[in-house]
């Protein structure tokens, strides 16, 4: 077997192990689905009642933003999972087996795609209830969903690295909050980034989260009569998002695998 095939085969074994846990602890899945519902309702009704974005219906506008934010939160689960594994003897077992050195990470990030798929499904259904609609073809919409999942997958590798680097599960949670909140709010997720003041506007416009939200918005046909974005990143959101995804994966896959090999049980 080639190294890549081995990484996927072993990764699949580890992913299966992670998925069995969902079956044994169904509560995990309940919380995974509750928080997306809460986010959609919260933003839909609280922000939706007070924010008005000229040219579009807010309940259509914000949903792509909630999608983007929620899958990033979902990706932080990867870091928690890795940190949890590192505190247990099971990692020593894995590291003493002739399996691919990347398999534990490939398996963990892989199984977390399922979590995020479920949360997107739940959010979509809740979104439909509060007035969100897909106004494009099914194919385009699928493209939007795939981009969200792909972006979440890339963020999973960042979180996996964090999970391996920090000393405990609690630290992963706190650290990821510190990172996720600014990243998902200084963006066009919930507001029109062109209305933000000075430097905040520049950051928001070049923030990859904005591009992902914008790309999803376009894929679902939720841009309404909004003016074309002037800035290149938001004018080509798909391309710009894919660039970021490629960069993140190229940096964090090798970095995480190296960290995994270096790290010892805590």
């Amino acid at each position: 077997m080639t190294r890549l095939a081995l990484a996927f085969a072993d990764g699949a074994v580890v992913a299966k192990r992670n998925l069995i846990k969902i079956r044994r602890v169904p509560e995990l899945l309940i919380w995974t689905t509750m928080s997306p519902i809460m986010f959609v309702l919260l933003f839909g009704y609280v922000f939706g009642s007070s924010i008005d974005i000229a040219g579009t219906n807010y309940r259509e506008f914000f949903i792509a933003g909630v999608f983007a934010q929620t899958v990033i939160f979902g990706a932080s689960g990867t870091g928690v999972g890795m940190a949890e594994d590192m505190t247990k003897g099971i990692i020593d077992r894995f590291r003493s087996l002739p399996m691919a050195r990347s398999a534990v990470l490939v398996g963990r990030t892989g199984s977390d795609i399922l979590y995020n798929s479920i949360s997107i499904l739940v959010m979509s259904l809740t979104g439909l209830l509060v007035g969100w609609r897909i106004r494009t073809s099914a194919l385009e919409a699928i493209g939007g969903f795939l981009l969200l999942l792909l972006f979440a997958y890339a963020i999973s590798w960042v979180m996996a690295y964090v999970g391996l680097k920090v000393p405990s599960v609690e630290v992963v949670q706190n650290a990821s909050f510190m990172f996720i909140f600014p990243m998902t709010f200084v963006a066009n997720t919930f507001v029109d980034s062109s209305q933000l003041p000075g430097p905040l506007r520049t950051v928001a416009e070049w923030n990859p989260v904005s591009a992902v939200a914008q790309a999803a918005r376009e894929a679902f046909g939720n841009t309404g009569d909004l003016p074309e974005p002037e800035v290149w990143s938001l004018d080509h959101p798909f391309l710009y998002s894919l660039m970021w995804i490629a960069i993140i994966l190229a940096v964090f896959i090798p970095l995480s695998v190296r960290q995994y090999n270096k790290a010892t049980t805590k």
Binding site: I90, R93, L97
Partner: peptide, 22 residues
């Protein structure tokens, strides 16, 4: 410290290890 996955059954643990030895 017993290096087994506590959410997996005994059988699943051993099968997983077997698969990882290919």
């Amino acid at each position: 410290n017993a290096a087994v996955d506590e959410y997996l059954t005994g059988y699943e643990n051993l099968d997983m290890v077997g698969r990882l030895y290919h």
